[in-house]
Design a protein around this nucleic acid. Structure first.
Lengths: 233, 233
DNA sequence: CGCACTCTTGAGGGAGCTCAACATTTGTGG
DNA sequence: CCACAAATGTTGAGCTCCCTCAAGAGTGCG
């Protein structure tokens, strides 16, 4: 399933763009490590996570081919691990260490930062859902959208990964997915693959709605406080 | 309590750095609006939030004097509102619209993006806590650290804001804060101000621990999958 | 074939939500 | 200055949803 491009991996490559293979489950970097490079997924799936002191994980994102991760300053704020076998491309940070070259690299960094921010905001939105069904539905929808196809969406990450991403237990995730299948919103094709049967129903559950952005009731919400100021130029 | 610097507000100011007063509770921009500028808090407190279709809010951050917000591309991804009366400074985005000037402004944008990302990661970490006590303790600790003083930390936002930030109800937040006070971890000085009595106890509850970054058990976690690859180059 | 791992499903209990009442603070107008 | 109203915060009782504990089913590998 995974295309590895061994010819790319095996040539020395330019120092600013070297490829790296990482085995399933292996860490790419750890939270707290010095952040010398950021990464681009070539193939496979990467997860980023933070560990709480009690040992439980918070997955902050899944990254697919073409996605960036590890765009941190000074030290990495999260740990990155390979969900599947992956190939990643390493990119050098610009300003840090080499104040000389500032041209295209800076724009790249900015673009990568924006994507990282969007990813983090997506994660917050997921966690912002109230019930398990809402979170799971939103997650499955996002996966279906991300991976295109309304038919046959792969779920390469384990139930454990999903649970730690949504702030639920593996049991609740499993039960909820089964329930969604029972209600004919999705169809399971094995544990690692599903199909969207009722997209409208899923969206309804997830609270995902394109019109939710800037609907009239949201935009024109009146202030609750009694401020004495008004907008000033 | 709030220092307004009316002299700054009232002069015309350079076009790339104009000040703006916003009354308590009033929106500064709405999710979906075209993102022409980003903002810096001069005084007061700003909150950013997203509204779900069922009407409930997810607060994604509180921003104090010196903090940046609204560093989005194309359109704002969140709504920004004034928690207290505030004064903000507006900054122009660089590349968008003016491809000519790329010098200092780009670095500023990058710095602002990094801060926004850190803020989002902090929000995720808060929501990643399991119980209400953990979330509230972590939130209060963050506020205490942010606002310095181990004595007399102001809580200018309402219980409702805190609840929507932590993914709890106002009732649970209130109960939990009362409980922390009852257990002598904090002391309440009115609903809008508290004092940290037992920082170690709070940290313990919150799972906040400087050593949690890169402890041995976290760093050397063994891979769970049986990957056939190893690190390459 | 047996072991290890993941996923699924059930039963019971507890944390937090809902509903409700009351307390406190703040703002307004007589 | 006080009376009233509105907004905000606190606390209690009951219930629901998800977590915990437990067992079983499915799959891959040696």
């Amino acid at each position: 399933v995974i295309t590895l491009y061994p010819q790319d991996v095996e040539n020395g490559g330019a120092p600013s763009s070297s490829l790296m293979r990482i085995g399933k489950g292996v860490a790419i970097y750890y939270e707290g490590d010095q952040a010398k490079r950021w990464y681009e997924v070539v193939s496979g799936i990467v997860r980023t996570c933070r560990y709480h002191v009690d040992g439980h994980r918070q997955l902050t994102g899944f990254f697919y081919a073409g996605d960036f991760f590890g765009v941190d300053e000074d030290s990495y704020k999260e740990t990155a691990e390979a969900v599947t076998n992956v190939v990643v491309r390493r990119h050098a940070h610009d300003a840090t260490g080499q104040p000389g070259g500032r041209g295209k690299s800076s724009e790249e960094t900015e673009s990568a930062l924006r994507k990282a921010l969007t990813s983090a905001q997506q994660c917050i939105f997921l966690l912002g859902h109230r019930t398990a069904a809402e979170r799971v539905a939103a997650f499955l929808l996002a996966a279906a959208i991300r991976l295109g196809a309304t038919k046959g969406v792969p779920l390469p990450m384990s139930r454990n990964d999903i649970a730690d991403h949504l702030g639920l237990t593996i049991h609740t995730v499993s039960r909820t997915i089964s329930d969604l299948a029972r209600r004919r919103l999705i169809a399971l094709e094995g544990p690692q693959r599903f199909r969207v049967l009722d997209e409208a129903g899923l969206r309804d559950l997830a609270g995902e709605d394109p019109t939710s952005i800037a609907t009239e009731e949201n935009r024109r919400r009146q202030p609750t406080g009694q401020g004495e100021y008004r907008e000033f130029v």
